[in-house]
Nucleic acid binder design. Structure first.
Length: 369
RNA sequence: GGAGAGGUUCCCGAGUGGCUAAAGGGAGCAGACUGUAAAUCUGCCGUCUUCGACUUCGGUGGUUCGAAUCCACCCCUCUCCA
């Protein structure tokens, strides 16, 4: 039901292409997964997502548990049919909310007690319950319930979180009863070399179909994230997919692929799109800014998305300034297409054994600080 | 012709003697955003090179140590009655 196969290992880099077989179809890697936290990629129709080349989307256990409830989704026939997306889905366990809803939760060895951000009610999440909920939701890939350390975080505290994450993954494995879902473990360890190494070894040695890297891109400088990936990448099992969680700016994507990452997810393209910022291969374009008021060219001349084929920067800026919902839709669509197409180009470069040239070329054109 | 109300910084709109370069909102400008509490949040928003200095509240004079705020006249809007 779930299989991963490496297609090509590029030379002079850890970059590789591969194929992931899931119950809802095949995924070619390296892949970018748009985020649809609440069973919807904000501002995008599933139809357009499909057309933009999305192979898989990510959704969120914590949010769907809180609303509308996992029972309801199950009753609807699972997440795929509930949200009308029939390609693969990955659900995050709610582990990230342990980090992001910092003020509204309490961690113990048993699990995490959350106070709902919606109505303030209290809810207990444990490795068992997170796994159970994800089974109800029915995604193709489900994630371990982990504790994501913030940045910065002392060695001691990071170690405790990492060890807890390790204990919890074993409980997730035990709790898992469905065989058509793939459970990925998550490496933690913050920005501490020894912990990262230790966690990478621990998670890699588990009998699981995929390995994820969590706790990165949480506010640390980018070079630190790359350092951590450098430490981890020799340890990661070559025959399993490597998933870097929460990373999605183009510069980070190339560098991640270069370090052997196969899967990425990120809210950046969708969130910044809604805020009026467009993603391009040269760096971001803050369309809201006055410079674009009379710029009648598309976001990117070379982009094949619906937005770029039909609308100018000036028009998009107008929509943003006017508070029109279409602005969010059009820019998000472009950002997703741009990011996905970027991954397609990466795949092509790897297959043609010119990934390093691709990477050099990318950095020569990248203007973001 | 008569009776009222009012003119405040780009706009709306508070402010009735010092704490006022002047509340609040809007607009404008900029920044942030990376397993989504986000169609969000933050900053700037009279001029000058910062501490600070300077010029502002329809106009002109005046009262006062001190005025957007009080007085006089003038200009202009709006409402009601003839």
């Amino acid at each position: 039901m779930f299989e991963y196969e490496v297609i090509k290992n590029a030379k002079g880099t850890k970059a590789r292409t591969g194929k992931l077989q899931t119950p809802h179809g095949e995924i070619k890697t390296p892949v970018f997964m748009p985020v649809g936290t609440q069973a919807t990629v904000k501002a995008v129709l599933p139809r357009d997502l499909d057309e933009a080349g999305a192979q898989i989307v990510l959704s969120n256990t914590y949010h769907l548990y809180m609303r509308p409830g996992a029972d309801l989704v199950e009753e609807a026939g699972g997440l795929h049919s509930f949200m009308g997306w029939h390609k693969p889905i990955l659900t995050d366990s709610g582990g990230f909310q342990v980090f992001s809803l910092k003020g509204m939760r309490k961690i113990s060895d048993d699990g995490v007690r959350f106070q709902s951000h919606i109505d303030g009610s209290y809810h207990m999440f444990t490795p068992e319950s997170a796994t159970h909920t994800q089974q109800q939701l029915g995604a193709d890939i489900i994630m371990a319930f982990d504790e994501c350390s913030p940045y910065p975080c002392e060695h001691d505290k990071t170690m405790q979180a990492m060890e807890r994450t390790h204990r919890w993954i074993e409980r997730c494995i035990k709790a898992k009863t469905r065989h058509d879902q793939a459970l990925f473990g998550i490496i933690q360890g913050g920005m501490h070399d020894d912990l990262r190494r230790q966690s990478a070894e621990f998670i890699s040695n588990l009998d699981l179909p995929g390995v994820a890297v969590g706790g990165l891109s949480v506010g640390e400088p980018k070079h630190l994230m790359n350092d951590m990936l450098d430490i981890i990448s020799p340890i990661l099992p070559g025959d399993k997919p490597h998933y870097l969680m929460g990373v999605g700016s183009l510069d980070c994507l190339v560098e991640g692929v270069h370090r052997g990452i196969d899967m990425f997810d990120c809210v950046l393209p969708t969130r910044t799109g809604r805020m009026g910022t467009a993603v391009t291969k040269r760096g971001r374009l803050v369309l809201r800014n006055a410079t674009y008021a009379r710029d009648f060219s598309p976001i990117d001349e070379d982009c094949d998305c619906y937005t770029c084929k039909n609308f100018s920067r000036a028009y998009l800026r107008h929509l943003i300034k006017a508070g029109e919902i279409l602005a969010a839709q059009l820019i998000t669509l472009h950002n997703i297409r741009c990011t996905i197409r970027f991954m397609d180009e990466i795949q092509e470069a790897i297959e043609q054994d010119r990934f390093n040239e691709f990477r050099d070329y990318f950095w020569r054109n990248w203007h973001e600080k």
